[in-house]
Design a protein around this nucleic acid. Sequence first.
DNA 1: TCACACGTAACAATAGCAGTTGCATTTATC
DNA 2: GATAAATGCAACTGCTATTGTTACGTGTGA
Lengths: 142, 142
Amino acid sequence: MKRNSRLSLALHTLSHMAGDPDRVRTSADIAVHAGTNPVVVRRVLGKLREAGLLSSEKGHAGGWRLAKPARSITLADVYLALDERLVSGNDTDLEPSHCSVETGLQMRVAEVLEEIEESLVKRLRETSITDVHPKSCSYCDS
Amino acid sequence: MKRNSRLSLALHTLSHMAGDPDRVRTSADIAVHAGTNPVVVRRVLGKLREAGLLSSEKGHAGGWRLAKPARSITLADVYLALDERLVSGNDTDLEPSHCSVETGLQMRVAEVLEEIEESLVKRLRETSITDVHPKSCSYCDS
DNA sequence: TCACACGTAACAATAGCAGTTGCATTTATC
DNA sequence: GATAAATGCAACTGCTATTGTTACGTGTGA
């Protein structure tokens, strides 16, 4: 896997779950299907649980399932749950320039990028994870 | 500097230039103002030149300037010039899964992310670099 | 000829992330 | 109670992308 793998993995998994919401899946199962590692799966899905999108149960016959109706989960929920800030970086530490004008410009640039970030989230809010699920999905039967 | 520094640096520089389009700036000047290195500046600005946004001149009294009216340069131009693909990764090598259904789902996820990517570019196209320039900018006089 | 600036290659340093291992904890089942 | 199975979490290892830096070649005006 490469870049944006977290978001990709999350959507992949949630899309599966949307197809068969009652089924409980283990991180091992998911890892096999996603072609990755159980620990990586738990790391990503843990974020989604913190955000209230998924629930997990320990112990025998434990695993993961949706914590709310698939229809109500948008891509924005997933995006925000993963703390992804693709456009505006997490630049909290913009070092103060010697020139006050530079500082003003830096803040303005950050401001614009923040606006774009918000636009992105707004767009993500328009798509549900059920929209990601393919029309013909025989996995739901397997 | 941190993440997204290329986009940030590019907007920073272009915003400056928009304020005083006739002035020729050296990569050294820009580097000082942006708090980075001349070579880094040339790397980023080189991309913008390839895209026809900037022009550069070698030799004595050489440097960088806008290649077209600031008003006509949008954030999308900058974004695309830098080959940034923030949402949909450059995943050209999605390894074929053992399961055809998985492959279908992976493609569907990539498809959705591509749609989001296009929405982002569309949004970026609505903002010009002149919109990034601060209202009160004394730099234009310096 | 000289100073200056871009163009580019090569390298080091850093940061983020996937992958992996190991172990503690929780829980259903025997 | 013992056992198997699952999450939770910490620590560690590579891998990759990016920035920063140095060095040198090339072009250009004074």
